[in-house]
Design a protein around this nucleic acid. Structure first.
Lengths: 250, 250
DNA sequence: GGGTGCTGATGGTATTACCAATCTTCCAGA
DNA sequence: TCTGGAAGATTGGTAATACCATCAGCACCC
């Protein structure tokens, strides 16, 4: 296949190339991509492979396929459309900082006694999970979702849930959170308690601020884990160099 | 093709059917989907069509394809993967008010010239769509997603996209927005321009405020449409009562 | 018990054929 | 001259078939 960086599967390589061409302005929004047969000839791949690449673009809502007419560019790709692009732990935590703080503020305006009791029980469970060497973060997740539920807005709840699902399914985020945990960066009970206190006081400003403090600390923990990871990588690279040198001088 | 509701293109029908099967628990997370050849036989389609459907699922990160092994379920489809999930128009717009304003504030801190140009073109397109009696809200959607993209945070983008997808798939929201549109409540270009101006000025506070003004107005429009609808319902109820009374006294 | 090799099953890609839908061009009629 | 319809070309959609690469499981040997 011509002009494609071999990487994984052909359809992905071709989708990537087409995304690059759209991004570079070769095919503006509203314009039609070349026909399947033409693309197949140009990239020296089979037509089914072209179709598969176009479908990948279609599912990402980048193009619209009109039967008998062609594939039309719907929008310019952003970074999030590059295959293999995963949500980073930083992005995830930044998004949570922005959004969960607003959810906490809204919840504070209307939270009930029962909801407060549930959240209090979850704070206690977080403390218990922190003692367990193989602890999970189930209670932490439930704590945040309980606050989202207290907004009594289903859309808000589904958004916060989506953020937590992203966290669960992102390999990079999982790795970094694991590193953070090994470095003993765990949910800080005091921060959760501060959020709970602000909710109890019905103070939306305090709730927003407490949630931001908490998630900023999570962000710091991730940066700490990132540095730890960078150090470990550097050590590994040095070791490899030493071995190479030992081999060269043996 | 067997057991598929005919709708659009075969691969889409099949992808939909597979999503339903995953959702219903037939294929839990981590389990392997049947082989392409088996699915082709079962659904009475060709193997390339099966491949196309699997690629659609793969691009949506629902499955992971291992060469020589099969397609494995990565996660359960959420409600956002299933059309028809019902969030009220009020909940949706309130969530957007909370979250999109934060996204606008973040975007304002780093937005590029190219991104501003894209957004400006979209504002102009909104104005054009407003003239069309059968106008859509495509440009409005793209406007908001372009701002989300300008945050350069994939998690933020996916959240805003999810909110718009909820709107697109919610029957109740669609009805109310239709009512609002008939009452001539349309995207106000001046509000969009104000958001654009704040972004251009790199003023995150102004961007947040402008987005909140805009979405508060959308909320007002919905409430207006809700009142109109409530009035119409009340009139219908009164008419029904009159007919019942007339029947009772006849 | 562990390692290696073989076989069958899996996905990946290509070629070819035919059909349906759309677009463009040309011709005939008003 | 203009308009509408038909025909042909181009487009995407689906299917069938062939062959190749990779993986997983099983059997055999050390």
């Amino acid at each position: 296949m011509a002009n494609i960086q071999p990487n994984d599967r052909l359809y992905q390589d071709l989708a990537r190339a087409l995304i690059e061409e759209i991004s570079s302005g070769r095919y503006p929004v509203g314009s039609r991509l070349p026909a399947e047969r033409e693309l197949a000839a140009r990239f020296e791949v089979s037509r089914p492979t072209v179709r598969e690449a176009i479908i990948a673009l279609e599912v990402q809502n980048l193009v619209e396929v009109r039967i008998g007419s062609g594939a039309y560019v719907k929008r310019l790709p952003g970074d999030e459309d590059r295959p293999g692009f995963d949500v980073t732990a930083f992005e995830l935590t930044e998004a949570r900082l922005l959004f969960e703080s607003e959810a906490a503020a809204l919840a504070a305006t209307q939270i009930t006694k029962a909801e407060l009791q549930e959240i209090e029980a979850l704070v206690q469970q977080i403390a218990i999970e922190n003692q367990d060497p193989n602890g999970t973060e189930k209670a932490d997740r439930e704590f945040h979702l309980a606050i989202a539920r207290a907004t009594r807005n289903l859309a808000v709840y589904k958004v916060i849930e989506q953020l937590w699902d992203m966290r669960a399914s992102s390999a990079e985020a999982a790795l970094l959170h694991e590193k953070a945990r090994h470095a003993n960066v765990k949910p800080v009970v005091a921060e959760h308690t501060a959020i709970l206190d602000a909710l109890r006081a019905g103070d939306s400003h305090a709730a927003r601020a407490a949630m931001r403090v908490h998630l900023s600390a999570v962000l710091d923990g991730l940066l700490f884990a990132t540095e730890e990871r960078a150090l470990a990588e550097a050590r590994r690279a040095t070791q490899a160099k030493r071995e190479r040198y030992a081999r060269a001088t043996a």
